[in-house]
Design a binder for these strands. Structure first.
Lengths: 190, 190
DNA sequence: ACAGGAACGCTAGCAGTGCTAGGGTTGCTG
DNA sequence: CAGCAACCCTAGCACTGCTAGCGTTCCTGT
């Protein structure tokens, strides 16, 4: 009974170690550097151990993405909470969103670019993703009275996501980043 | 002299065959299905021939992307030209952009999601990419009097790109696609 | 017309990928 | 303490992008 509890705990710790190793490696050297062999070496176990925790490499990336959704949601909540007024909240939340994506590009990729269908198969992703979306929604609510809230939120979100991804692929002039963000915020908070 | 001309022509034809094969295969089965071996089989040559035309698989994808930029630019030009008035032009160009991305998802990926840095190293990509961007710019110009034109264009483009990519990864409700597009157009053509 | 040479495309193979089958070794259980 | 079950590792598969080296073919200059 007690030994079984310890085993389960150790197993959970090892699973977390895998996720953390994948996350750190991806942040440091990009997802291409995250191979199952390197991951196994990092946690000091053999490759097949990974597959006793996750269905495959995609599932590991999905797990990293799940953590990312939670982090993003928290960042958005904090940004809105500390904003002086609803209009400024839109700008602050937008800045927080973009900052998250720029500081953790690999994780943002796992969340939105890669691992397309896996997250939605899982159960807890919708929770944290919904938390983030809800926060965006509440931020936009005061300034989007005429249009449907969910639709406006989705469109605003798409604007942020587009700025982030086009920036990252070098399609936009790096210097004018703040001005573009200001334009987006302005168009959605008039 | 003549035989050399024929050889160069045949070589150019084979190069185009590689690009076309990659494009068709990517459209039909996605980029994962585009392997150098399958590509070689498709053009009825051996693998190493590919490397006498392109530096690697990435370069082949980049070549497909280049064709994509030209197509997209043409589609946008046509959409704007047939619009009755400047305000409707914004909506029509936006629709054309999204339609292009949805009808050729693999090519859109090659243009914007994958092959991050390669296109900009080449010479002719900026040309066709700039054509498309200029068309977007001219479309937005009449309705963006107060803000800096290039900044507004980039931001509008980011909105379109975000809608396309989030849609494709299943993050947005498929049904409300037109409403989101309408919101975006409205916010940028007031 | 013919020998010499160079361009050309093939076969075979390398290092690395994600993933899996099978067997031992370990450590818990009755 | 014997027996069993859980566990994890070694070895290997099929596949990837890419390359070295050879053999053939075809054009060239005499």
């Amino acid at each position: 009974m007690s030994t079984q509890a310890r085993r389960e705990r150790e197993r959970a710790e090892r699973e977390q170690a895998i996720i953390t190793a994948a996350r750190d490696l991806a942040l440091a050297e990009g997802w291409d550097a995250v191979t199952t062999r390197r991951l196994a070496a990092e946690i000091e176990y053999s490759q097949p151990v990974l597959y006793s925790h996750f269905k495959g490499k995609d599932a590991i990336m999905a797990a990293v993405a799940v953590e990312g959704f939670a982090e993003l949601a928290t960042a958005l909540v904090s940004a809105r909470a500390s904003a002086p007024d609803p209009r400024q909240a839109v700008a602050d939340v937008a800045t927080a969103y973009v900052a998250f994506a720029q500081q953790r590009p690999a994780i943002y990729d796992a969340m939105f670019t890669l691992a397309v269908d896996l997250p939605f198969a899982s159960q807890d992703v919708p929770t944290d993703l919904a938390r983030g979306f809800a926060e965006l929604s509440e931020t936009v609510r005061p300034v989007a009275v005429d249009d449907d809230l969910e639709t406006v939120t989705e469109t605003f979100w798409a604007g942020l996501h587009g700025l982030v991804t086009l920036m990252r692929s070098g399609r936009l002039r790096r210097a004018d980043h703040d001005r573009r963000l200001a334009v987006l915020v302005d168009r959605f908070s008039r």
